[in-house]
């Protein structure tokens, strides 16, 4: 068996620290009723985090400066149109992959 002690310790340690933020809210929320401002705040989280994740894929962070990933930004436009038009997750994901493959094929 090819197991290395350092790697096992890293995996176990990382397993614990990824589990904590995932589980704690489920343990805490059971025992308290959230105040209205908090539930309102939570209602804005999905839109904000999804936007942040999309923006994150457009930004390339180098050592100290940041730049825009133009191929991603270019592909986002037609993908957004497909999303608005079809309202389908599968169709949009497949279309997005095809658009990205085309853009990379043309510009590489």
């Amino acid at each position: 068996m090819s197991f290395n002690l350092t790697i096992i310790l890293v995996i176990l340690g990382c397993a614990i620290v990824t589990l904590i933020p995932r589980i704690i809210p489920f343990l805490v929320v059971r025992n308290i009723t959230l105040p209205v401002p908090i539930t309102k705040w939570l209602s804005f989280i999905p839109i904000c985090i999804l936007t942040a994740l999309v923006v994150d894929s457009i930004i390339i962070e180098d050592e100290s400066l940041i730049s825009i990933d133009w191929s991603v930004l270019t592909v986002i436009v037609p993908t957004l149109i497909i999303a608005l038009w079809t309202k389908s997750l599968s169709v949009t994901v497949i279309a997005g992959i095809v658009f990205m493959a085309i853009v990379r094929y043309i510009f590489n």
């Binding site: 957004l80 309202k87 997750l89 997005g96 992959i97």
Partner: peptide
């Protein structure tokens, strides 16, 4: 990356965002 598969995640987040706004 060549196949454009890495864009699957972005496309998905984008669609979920659109669906929620709608």
């Amino acid at each position: 990356e060549i196949f454009g598969l890495d864009f699957a995640l972005t496309a998905m987040f984008l669609t979920l965002l659109v669906l929620q706004l709608q």
